[in-house]
Design a protein around this nucleic acid. Structure first.
Lengths: 208, 208
DNA sequence: CAGGCTGTTGACAAGATTGTTAGTAAGTCC
DNA sequence: GGACTTACTAACAATCTTGTCAACAGCCTG
């Protein structure tokens, strides 16, 4: 039972392992739910080691939040780049963004941070670029008719964002309360519906 | 400086005052952020008094969450009843629901509870009834064409729910990141856009 | 191998937080 | 007025959480 062997990593590896453990807690319980002892135990170190590498609990939380936001940013950019321009594949693009947000609990992280009102330094989601790209595509579909204002496209992107961020967290309960099933396929069908709604906005509006 | 006067309420009044104080913390910091001392100080009692009336911290949290959910339920039903059936006034109805969710921090409470995975006993939002009412209205607008499936209407209600719950929390950041303004009028315009999108789904789909 | 650098840890300290207990005081009923 | 109920509180206890400190232990360089 000799646990006397000390594992010695270099500083970078130790920080990574500790941040990995902290990120689990971040997804599960939010920034305010991160406990040094739990993070340390999960990382296989003692809690003073965590303080040695990060200085304080707050600094650890800042670091894990910043790393998570950068990871989210990278995942979203990747998902958006992969299926850019093919408006027929909008459903696939929404699925890719949804997977980026739901898979690793990233949607939960975004909501935790928004609720706790944490001041974030970097890694904002480049929604403005998405709006611009979408707006250019939309204008091309309108032909010679007068194009919709940019604000309209921005609203469309915001609506999709709200849906995709909220879906992993609120989706199960909302779908069940609406009388629908609650499995993964039900969420996929909702995303297909969202794609249909968005595409319909691309066409020129009906004359009233 | 004689603070020696003990204020003595009856049990119901004491519980109400304590729950009011606890609800402030619930909105601000979530169920996990409720502290007996803070709640007690805010309610003007000592913390053992809180335990006297509720038994334990967990019981207090359960009580305040249940009361908040019932209040949300009542506010939503009221908002939905007030503007029922007038599809031309859909924007007003969305505004009413938005006010019910944003005004008292109710949207924050719903998100806190969803994120913390708290098991809730009663007070589910009656989305199924909303879906049924919306679906009936939608079918009447379709005339003799074949009506859309009920699932489609349910998806529409879920989309509106995701937007209205997420808007008070994520709206400011999303609107700003999209290159829009961040004031109250910007949120109102987004809701008007949402109403437009929903109403467009009411019309029969264009032939493809 | 000697020495230093540094990752690592047990022990401790200080404060926060929940819960207990004994007793006080305000209101009610006889 | 006296007895009873109960809202209420101060003081304490137990546990948790963050942070400090001195010392230990790998690893590299001379």
């Amino acid at each position: 039972m000799a646990e006397t062997k000390r594992k010695r990593r270099d500083a970078a590896a130790a920080r990574t392992e500790i941040l990995d453990a902290a990120e689990k807690r971040l997804v599960l319980a939010g920034p305010g739910g991160i406990r040094l002892q739990e993070v340390a135990a999960d990382a296989g170190v003692s809690h003073p080691t965590v303080l040695h590498h990060f200085g304080s609990r707050e600094a650890l939380v800042d670091a894990v939040v910043e790393r998570a936001l950068q990871a989210i940013h990278a995942r979203l950019v990747e998902a958006l780049q992969k299926s850019r321009g093919e408006e027929a594949e909008l459903a696939a693009m929404l699925d890719a963004v949804f997977d980026a947000l739901a898979g690793s609990g990233h949607a939960r992280v975004l909501l935790w941070i928004a609720l706790e009102g944490r001041h974030v330094t970097g890694g904002e989601v480049p929604l403005s670029a998405v709006v611009d790209a979408t707006h250019a595509l939309r204008k091309s579909k309108h032909g010679r008719k007068k194009p919709p204002p940019r604000e309209d496209t921005a609203h469309l992107v915001v609506l999709a964002s709200l849906a995709l961020v909220g879906l992993p967290v609120l989706g199960p309960k909302l779908l069940r309360n609406s009388g629908l099933e609650n499995d993964a396929d039900s969420m996929r069908r909702f995303r297909a519906f969202l794609a249909k709604v968005i595409l319909r906005q691309f066409a020129p509006p009906p004359e009233t």
